[in-house]
Design a protein around this nucleic acid. Structure first.
Lengths: 234, 234
DNA sequence: AAGCCGGCTTAAGACAATCTTAAGAATTTG
DNA sequence: CAAATTCTTAAGATTGTCTTAAGCCGGCTT
């Protein structure tokens, strides 16, 4: 089941932004709309974006500047919006990494078509690389290999029991996101059980932390979010 | 058995409106015909419309204006009718949200084809999937992520308790609107409780304001509207 | 201007989620 | 089959969070 693509729309002209939103939502895209650059940049950190539509002229930050920042940190296509007479900027915009540009005023249906084209192109190239099923997770000193069932932390091997490995795997593959102990339980043990004793999970977390030289009070890796669950940072 | 689609037709030229009606009825559509904008707008409130055909030039209200109002309140495709020489308006019409346009004079069968195309397109996309639940809210320096259960204000992280997070989430997702403490209570705690003690809500608001370096007397973010509730500005 | 009423503040006690520990049950291994 | 390892359960300790209540303050009304 494919998730609807998240599209970031940034334009200080509310009417334009709203128009784009209407059309994209009509195509069942998930639209994240902003009227200034700062909020948009903030949003990128929180959300996983699939495509961005940026106005060149923004009140706080130049659209090109945003585009550059996207290129540095992220990897999704960018479409720039530019007034018809800003001829020179076209080239500049493309040079700085935009994947396409649309001049205002534009026909909404054409805009939608271009968005689709970019998404198609992007997913096509990206469909090549990633293995259908993740087999290894590596980030910030932590490395997990599913088929080897091995784990190293800062090059030092950790000998984990099967359950511990599974828990860490679930946390790592959801890194950044808080996972409740109920969810963890179901991911690791399967849906067949219906115990309310998430205490079991807790004990394993405890063991994990011990082996990772982590602690509950000052967690370096597995953080507990009170009343919600556990999470491991990216 | 699929219900015949309701099609709203608005044109002050009676002959044109009648012509459209004849052809659409021939295709077994249910036609709601009006010769002015006001009656058409009224009708939309009463009836469930599937598609609208609007003339640009109307005696009382501009066709574009109607189109905008449809976009705000409803979610059905709009086809605009425009005289051949109104070249410039084509773009404007589309810009304001029309899904298609037909220039007069037109060939009735082409008109019918376009209606069918729009209905097909619309129902297809609407069958796709319901809009995914919002996961992040970002605006004017405030950023909330449900997944990460994190909150930042002007790039500075706020560590919120679960209840505080929920309250801020409700306020943020209703930004601009005043939310009464009763409503807040029900949104956050659920409908199972029936205490009238909105005092609890107040205390949490207090804590929130403290963490946001906000104050009741000179509120920057969470404003109290006397006798009504709380609100957070967009 | 005075008094009422709604909102604000504060802190302490109640409560609930998490942590820790250890022992016994289950499972795997030799 | 015995030993070792791993998993689960349970109970108490601990900590973070929520609620309650009482007094204060300030805007609204007469």
């Amino acid at each position: 089941m494919a998730m609807a693509a998240n599209i970031l729309v940034v334009d200080d002209e509310k009417s334009i932004a709203d128009l784009i939103e209407v059309y994209l939502k009509n195509e069942n895209y998930n639209v994240l709309k902003f009227y200034n650059g700062r909020d948009a940049l903030l949003c990128m950190e929180k959300e996983s974006i699939d495509l961005a539509i940026l106005d060149v002229m923004l009140p706080d930050i130049n659209g090109f500047s945003i585009c550059q920042q996207i290129r540095e940190k992220h990897n999704f296509p960018v479409i720039m919006l530019t007034a018809k007479d800003e001829e020179i900027d076209k080239i500049t915009g493309l040079t700085l990494g935009a994947d396409d540009y649309i001049t205002k005023p534009f026909r909404p249906l054409e805009m939608v078509a271009r968005v689709k084209a970019q998404l198609r192109r992007f997913t096509k190239y990206n469909a090549a690389e990633p293995a259908p099923e993740e087999n290894a997770i590596v980030f910030s000193g932590l490395a997990l290999s599913k088929d080897k069932h091995e784990c190293t932390l800062n090059e030092k091997p950790l000998s984990l029991t099967p359950t511990e490995f599974s828990i860490l795997w679930v946390l790592a593959s959801n890194r950044g996101r808080v996972v409740s102990s109920e969810e963890l339980f179901h991911e690791v043990w399967g849906d067949k059980y219906f115990t309310n004793s998430n205490n079991t999970v807790m004990v394993h977390i405890r063991h994990l932390r011990e082996k990772m030289q982590d602690s509950a009070e000052r967690p370096k890796y597995i953080k507990t979010v009170w009343g919600v669950g556990y999470k491991i940072e990216g």
